[in-house]
Simulated assay, not measured.
Amino acid sequence: MKAMVLNSYGPDAPFELAELPDPVATPGHVVVKVAAVSVNTVDTMIHNMGPDLPLSPNLPAVLGMDFAGTVTAIGEGVTDFAIGDEVYGCAGGLMDLPGSLAEYINADSRLIAHKPKSLSMRESAALPLVGITAYEGLTRAGVGDGQTVLVQGGAGGVGHVAVQIARHFGAKVSATGRGADQMSLIESLGARPLDFTKQKVEDYVAEHTDGVGFDVVFDSVGGANMTNSFAAAKLNGHVASTVAMVEIDLTPAHFKGLSLHVVFMLIPMMHDVGRQTHGNILQALAELADNGVLKPVVDEQTFGWADVGAAYAHLKNGSAAGKVVVELQ
C-alpha cells in the first residue's frame, strides 16, 4: 500500500511517499480503506517534537489519528462491523499504532463506529478526536438542561463541537473568540459570542450570569487561560480543560470549591484502557450528526496525497478556518 512516511522529526521534516506491506486484520481489528484523514494539533506536535513527546511513534512513522473509510477485512472476534461498512474513528498515529496517512489502516474495532450517514467522508474524518474530547469533557462536568456553559475557544476544533453538544444537552451556551469571523461562527452555532479581546472576564460574567458565574466552563484554550476559566466559574462550579500542561496557582479554584476535569482523550489508545468508551461516544456523535444537531466545520482548502506537508503547515500557521482534512481517494 501507499503511505506518507516520516523518516525524521522536526518542523521541516518532509512527508515521503513509500510502499508498505498491506495490513492484515488481527483479532479484534478491522482493516479500513482510508478515504480521508484530519490533521489535529497533537499530530503537528508529534511532527515537530518527535521523541520529546512520549507518545511519538518510532521512525519511520506513519502519522494520522482521525480517519473515515470503508471496511475491507474483518479480524477474528469482530461482530459489529462487516465488509463494506463505512466507518470513522481515531485509532492510530502514536506510539506503536500505525496511523491513517496510508491507503489502509488496521484499526481496533473498539475505537471506531459506523460513520454518520448525513456526513461525507471528509466531514466524518474531521470529527473523532475533537468530538470525543468535547463529549467527554461536557459529560464529566455534568452539563445538563438549563445550565449556563462557557466554552473558551468556541471557534476552534474542539470548541465549536463543544458548543453544539452543550446546546444539545440543553445548556445556555456562551463562547469566547476573537474577531468578526469567529464571532459570526460562534453565533451561527447558537451560542452567545464573547470577544475576549474586548471584554474582561468579570464584565461578561456580570452581564450574562448576573455576576454568579457559569455552571460549567469548558476550556479548549488552556494553559495560562485557565485562570480566566476559574474566574468565570460559579461557586462549586466545574472547569473542564483540554490543555492542562501548565504550572498554575490553584488558590482561586480552592476558594471557589471548583471541580477541575482534565480531558486527555488519547489515554485509551496509549494504555489500552476503556477503548470501547470511544466507540460508544463515536456512535453517539454519529446519531447527533444524523439528527441535525452536530456538524463539524471543515476548512475549505483541499489537500491530497501530495499535500500532506502543506496540510500540516496550514494548521500550524493558524490560517485554517475549521478542521484541516487530507483526502486520500
Rank of each mutant, 00 (worst) to 15 (best):
G153M: 07
V71E: 05
V201C: 03
V298D: 12
Q329V: 08
N280P: 02
L55M: 12
P98M: 03
V143K: 04
M265S: 04
V262T: 06
T148Y: 09
N7I: 02
A3Y: 00
P57W: 04
L266I: 03
F230T: 00
Q329N: 15
F230H: 03
G146L: 12
S188R: 15
V143Q: 04
M4C: 10
H168D: 08
V158N: 00
K2S: 10
E103K: 05
L315P: 04
L138M: 00
V37D: 02
I83L: 13
P116R: 09
L94H: 00
L294I: 12
S118I: 14
F255R: 14
E123A: 14
T79P: 02
G274F: 01
P60G: 02
G137P: 02
V308N: 05
H238R: 09
V325D: 03
N317K: 14
G159I: 01
R122F: 11
T139Q: 02
G64A: 07
I105A: 02
V324A: 06
G190W: 04
A113T: 09
S100H: 03
G177R: 01
P98N: 10
V34I: 15
A224P: 14
D22H: 13
D307T: 06
A73S: 13
Q199E: 15
E187P: 03
V32H: 01
A113L: 11
M183N: 15
N225P: 10
A233L: 11
G322E: 06
A3S: 10
K323H: 12
K316G: 14
K2C: 06
V30Y: 01
V212K: 15
K172G: 07
L101H: 08
V201N: 09
G144I: 00
E16V: 13
V273M: 11
R275Y: 02
